[in-house]
Amino acid sequence: MLGFMEYVQSAFLEASHWNQDNSYSSLTATARNLLDFPTPRGLRLNVSSLSTLNLATSYNLGSIGPVDGSLSYLYSSLPLKTTSKSSKIDLCDVVRGYRHLQELRRPDEQWRWEVWRGGRRIDQRDVLLYGRMFLPRSAIEGLYVRRLSPTQQIRVSCVSDARLKNGGTVLALYQRDVGKYSTELLYSTDEALAGVRGLYNFGPDPRKDNPPPNPSAERFYGRFSAGAELYYGAMNKSGGVSTGVRFTTLPAHSGIPLTMTLTINPLMGNLSTTYAVKAGDSLALCSRFDFNVYSYESDLVIGCELWRRRRRMARMATELDRVGDTEAAQGRVGGEEAAGVLKARLGQNGSIGLLWEGRIKELLFCLGPSAMPVTLEERS
Rank of each mutant, 00 (worst) to 15 (best):
residue 339 A to M: 03
residue 120 R to F: 11
residue 51 S to G: 01
residue 17 H to Q: 15
residue 92 C to N: 15
residue 292 N to K: 07
residue 275 Y to E: 06
residue 298 S to W: 04
residue 48 S to K: 03
residue 375 T to N: 07
residue 120 R to K: 15
residue 45 L to G: 01
residue 101 L to H: 04
residue 160 S to E: 07
residue 24 Y to V: 08
residue 233 G to P: 02
residue 340 G to Q: 00
residue 134 F to S: 14
residue 129 L to I: 12
residue 114 E to R: 14
residue 83 T to A: 11
residue 139 A to V: 09
residue 33 N to F: 02
residue 241 V to S: 10
residue 201 N to V: 12
residue 270 N to V: 02
residue 260 M to Q: 07
residue 211 P to N: 11
residue 236 N to H: 06
residue 102 Q to Y: 00
residue 219 R to P: 00
residue 122 I to D: 06
residue 368 G to H: 01
residue 287 S to L: 10
residue 187 Y to M: 12
residue 142 G to C: 11
residue 376 L to V: 12
residue 40 P to K: 06
residue 345 R to T: 15
residue 135 L to N: 03
residue 62 G to A: 14
residue 219 R to K: 10
residue 230 L to I: 08
residue 89 I to A: 01
residue 371 A to K: 08
residue 284 A to E: 13
residue 224 F to T: 12
residue 77 S to R: 02
residue 269 G to P: 04
residue 69 G to I: 08
residue 79 P to N: 07
residue 134 F to A: 14
residue 14 E to R: 13
residue 366 C to T: 11
residue 159 V to M: 10
residue 362 E to S: 13
residue 61 L to W: 09
residue 293 V to C: 06
residue 241 V to F: 15
residue 19 N to L: 04
residue 56 A to W: 02
residue 99 R to A: 07
residue 282 S to E: 11
residue 148 L to E: 10
residue 137 R to D: 15
residue 155 R to M: 09
residue 130 Y to T: 12
residue 19 N to Q: 09
residue 41 R to V: 10
residue 94 V to G: 03
residue 199 L to A: 05
residue 321 D to T: 11
residue 198 G to F: 13
residue 351 S to P: 00
residue 126 D to H: 12
residue 367 L to Q: 06
residue 376 L to G: 03
residue 80 L to Y: 02
residue 92 C to G: 15
residue 85 K to S: 14
residue 148 L to Y: 03
residue 139 A to L: 04
residue 242 S to Y: 01
residue 355 L to H: 05
residue 183 T to I: 14
residue 220 F to Y: 14
residue 57 T to M: 11
residue 277 V to M: 09
residue 93 D to E: 13
residue 328 A to H: 04
residue 52 T to V: 04
residue 53 L to P: 00
residue 380 S to M: 09
residue 196 V to G: 10
residue 110 Q to H: 05
residue 283 L to K: 02
residue 113 W to V: 05
residue 148 L to G: 06
residue 99 R to W: 00
residue 379 R to I: 11
residue 41 R to A: 14
residue 231 Y to S: 13
residue 246 R to M: 08
residue 204 P to D: 14
residue 16 S to I: 15
residue 248 T to Q: 09
residue 153 Q to K: 12
residue 43 L to E: 08
residue 36 D to H: 09
residue 121 R to F: 01
residue 317 A to D: 14
residue 195 G to K: 06
residue 55 L to A: 08
residue 272 S to I: 07
residue 203 G to F: 05
residue 335 G to Y: 00
residue 350 G to Q: 10
residue 27 L to I: 14
residue 75 Y to S: 07
residue 33 N to T: 10
residue 356 W to G: 05
residue 338 A to L: 05
residue 265 N to F: 02
residue 275 Y to F: 15
residue 82 T to L: 04
residue 6 E to S: 12
